[in-house]
C-alpha cells in the first residue's frame, strides 16, 4: 500500500520540481511571437524589432510567426487553446483586438488572455493630402458643413480604430461626410497619397515620410504624439479638443493564455520588460519613428478593458 503513495509523492515532487525549474529557467525552448497579421505591416515590423531585442536577453531563439486569417480570429483562437507554458506569446494592437471583438462577435474575448505588458503606444492620426486644402480638423468641419455628404473619410476597415475615431469625431460634432472603408492600411495609404479621399484616418506613424516631405499634412490625432521621433508633429491637435472624450489609437501588447501560472507570468513579464527597455529596442524605435513604452501587466490589462468599454459606447452612440 505504501508503494503507490510513495510513487505519487515522487511523481508530485518531480512535477513540482520540473515546474519550478521551468519557471527558473524560462524560457526553456524557442519563443514564438504570434502576429495575427501579414508580414510587412506595422505590428509585424514591431514584432520583428522586439524579437531581435528579446533574443539578446535570453539563450533561446525568438521567432515571429504570422498566423493570419479571419481578421485575427485564427491567431487568437490558436492562443486561446495554446499550452500555457509562456513559449507562445501573442503580439497585437489593443484596438485591433477590441474592434474585432466588438464589430464581429468573435469567438474569443480580450479577457481570454493574460496580459504580459505593452511595448508600443501609437495614436491613430488624421491625414490630408496637401492638395486637398484641408490643414486642420476645424477646416474639415467647415468644408463638410458647406457640402454635406460630399467629403470622404478613408478608413482601413469597418472593424478598426480608424472607423471608431472617424465615427466618434463626426458623431460628436454632427458632421455629415462619407466614411469609405478600404481593404486594409496599404490601399488606404495609396488613396491618401493620391489625394483620392478628403481625409484619411490611419495608425501613426504610417506615411510619416510623406508628412516630412510636405505631401501630406497631419490635421489631428487620436491622442498625444509626444513619443513620435519627428518633432514638428508632436503638438498636433487631438480629437479631445473636439469633444471626443477618449483617446483612440493602438497599444501593442503581449498576451499569453489565461491559465498561465502566476509565477510564469511574472517571470515572462519581467523578461519582456527587460527587452522592451533594452538599448536594442530603443534603437529600433528610432528606425520605426516612435519611442517604445513599457506598461506592466496591470496597466496593460486595465487599458484593454477601458478601451473595450469606450469602443462599445461609441458603437452604440454613433454607429448602430
Amino acid at each position: 500500500m505504501r508503494k503507490p503513495l510513495i510513487a505519487v509523492a515522487v511523481a508530485g515532487a518531480t512535477v513540482l520540481g520540473a515546474w519550478t525549474a521551468a519557471v527558473a529557467e524560462y524560457p526553456s525552448d524557442t519563443v514564438r511571437i504570434i502576429v495575427p497579421w501579414r508580414a510587412g505591416g506595422g505590428t509585424d515590423t514591431i514584432a520583428r524589432g522586439f524579437a531581435a531585442a528579446l533574443e539578446e536577453q535570453i539563450d533561446q531563439a525568438v521567432v515571429v510567426d504570422n498566423l493570419t486569417g479571419g481578421n485575427g480570429n485564427r491567431a487568437h483562437m490558436h492562443m486561446k487553446k495554446a499550452k500555457p507554458d509562456g513559449l507562445q506569446i501573442l503580439l497585437n494592437g489593443s484596438s485591433d483586438m477590441n474592434s474585432a471583438i466588438i464589430f464581429q462577435n468573435t469567438p474569443y474575448n480580450y479577457d481570454d488572455f493574460a496580459c504580459l505588458g505593452a511595448i508600443y503606444r501609437t495614436p491613430t492620426w488624421i491625414l490630408a493630402h496637401r492638395d486637398s486644402g484641408i490643414t486642420s480638423i476645424d477646416q474639415f468641419f467647415e468644408a463638410a458643413r458647406s457640402t454635406p455628404g460630399e467629403l470622404t473619410v478613408g478608413v482601413g476597415s469597418l472593424a478598426s480604430a480608424h472607423n471608431v475615431l472617424a465615427q466618434a469625431l463626426m458623431g460628436v460634432n454632427g458632421i455629415d461626410a462619407r466614411v469609405i472603408p478600404f481593404d486594409g492600411g496599404g490601399p488606404l495609404k495609396k488613396a491618401i497619397l493620391g489625394n483620392q479621399v478628403s481625409i484619411g484616418v490611419i495608425h501613426s506613424p504610417v506615411l510619416l515620410d510623406a508628412v516630412k516631405s510636405g505631401d501630406v499634412n497631419v490635421i489631428g490625432s487620436g491622442g498625444g504624439l509626444a513619443d513620435i521621433v519627428y518633432e514638428p508633429v508632436r503638438d498636433a491637435e487631438t480629437i479631445d479638443a473636439h469633444g471626443v472624450g477618449v483617446e483612440i489609437g493602438t497599444v501593442r501588447g503581449l498576451f499569453v493564455p489565461k491559465d498561465t501560472p502566476e509565477e510564469l507570468l511574472a517571470a515572462a513579464s519581467a523578461l519582456m520588460e527587460k527587452a522592451a527597455k533594452s538599448e536594442a529596442f530603443a534603437s529600433f524605435g528610432v528606425k520605426f519613428g516612435f519611442k517604445p513604452i513599457w506598461w506592466d501587466r496591470k496597466t496593460h490589462c486595465d487599458f484593454m478593458a477601458e478601451e473595450n468599454a469606450a469602443y462599445r459606447k461609441i458603437k452604440a452612440d454613433y454607429i448602430d
Partner: peptide, 16 residues
C-alpha cells in the same frame, strides 16, 4: 510589402 518592412528594420525610411 515584406521588403518595405525590411527597410524599416534596416533603419531606412521607405516612402516618398
Amino acid at each position: 510589402a515584406v521588403m518595405l518592412g525590411a527597410m524599416i528594420l534596416h533603419g531606412l525610411e521607405p516612402g516618398v
